[in-house]
């Protein structure tokens, strides 16, 4: 196979974009798990709904940028409702109960999307300003994919500032460490949990809108990717945001490079990585031991 530095570099770039979508999904999953210890299986469906609502808002306003902001907000709202009315009654029970509930919810949402928007899926075009390809020197790269990298970077930095520099962020971090003590300090953790669930779902919605112009919109779009995103969370360490970012990008690059050197392996390499990481570091890159028990 003839290849050179330019080819390898473009391969790394494609991997980066694959990674960004994993990062956005894994961040939401990890945030929710870290604070609520809820394994949110409906995350893939929220991703799918983000894409559909983005399409809907785009059709309504003819403006991609509005869709990019409004759809995640709607998903955040849906997240708030889900936490308040579906997940909250299950707190204090075993970890399986919310898992089963959200799994069921994901099936309902996929079926609902089929009923409302049809089984065939929709085509979502990138905004005109980002339609072309950009010459990076070593390859032509779609402008839209560069935008996805930039947008993810902005979201990650914003999330980090929110968690590190605001009072609410402090409460969230404290709640992850020891919910009981935070409660004892007189803080209403219910409200914080509600908010965090909403933020996590909004992130999934954002990932959906961002992915739609690259991959299209269809009811089953979240089914496979949610499993891969769980792998990312496990590899990064359950509940660790830094882990979600590092593992997301790593998995994206590993998939991309495997596709280049051994295309037949690309399908299973994600799970190989997980198996190896779990053998060497059972709690993932940055996970705390014993969190799952």
């Amino acid at each position: 196979m003839p290849f050179d530095a330019a080819t390898l570099l473009s391969q790394l770039f494609t991997g980066l974009v694959l990674g960004t979508i994993y990062v956005l999904l894994a961040l939401g999953l990890s945030l929710i798990f870290g604070l609520l210890t809820v394994v949110n299986f409906s995350h893939g469906s929220f991703y799918m709904l983000g894409a559909y609502l983005g399409f809907f808002v785009l059709g309504f306003t003819k403006n991609f940028w509005i869709a990019l902001v409004v759809a995640p907000l709607l998903l955040g709202l849906l997240g708030l409702l889900t936490e308040r009315w579906l997940v909250r009654p299950l707190y204090g029970r075993s970890i399986d109960d919310p898992l089963l509930l959200t799994f069921g919810l994901s099936l309902v949402l996929v079926e609902a999307a089929r009923l409302v928007w049809g089984k065939m899926g929709l085509t979502f075009d990138p905004p005109a300003a980002l339609a072309g390809a950009v010459n990076l020197g070593f390859t032509y790269f779609p402008a839209y994919r560069l935008f996805v990298i930039a947008a993810t970077a902005v979201v990650v930095v914003a999330l980090w500032l929110f968690l590190e520099r605001t009072t609410l962020g402090l409460v969230i971090r404290a709640g992850t460490r020891d919910a009981l003590i935070v409660r004892a300090l007189g803080i209403n953790l219910n409200l914080v949990w509600l908010l965090v669930f909403g933020i996590g779902c909004a992130l999934a919605g954002l990932a959906g809108v961002l992915a739609a112009p690259m991959r299209g919109v269809y009811p089953e779009m979240g089914v496979t990717i949610v499993i891969e995103s769980f792998v990312v969370v496990v590899v990064g360490g359950m509940g660790s945001l830094l882990g979600a970012i590092v593992a997301g990008l790593l998995i994206g690059e590993v998939v991309s490079l495997t596709t280049f050197f051994a295309p037949k392996m690309a399908d299973i390499v994600v799970f190989l990585v997980m198996a190896v990481v779990l053998l060497v570091r059972p709690s993932g890159f940055f996970g705390e031991a014993g969190l799952m028990e």
Binding site: M1, P2, T7, S10, Q11, F260, P263
Partner: peptide
């Protein structure tokens, strides 16, 4: 859903 990782190999050939 994403085919981008397959392209550099094709382009190099």
């Amino acid at each position: 859903t994403d085919y981008s990782a397959l392209f550099p190999r094709v382009q190099a050939a």
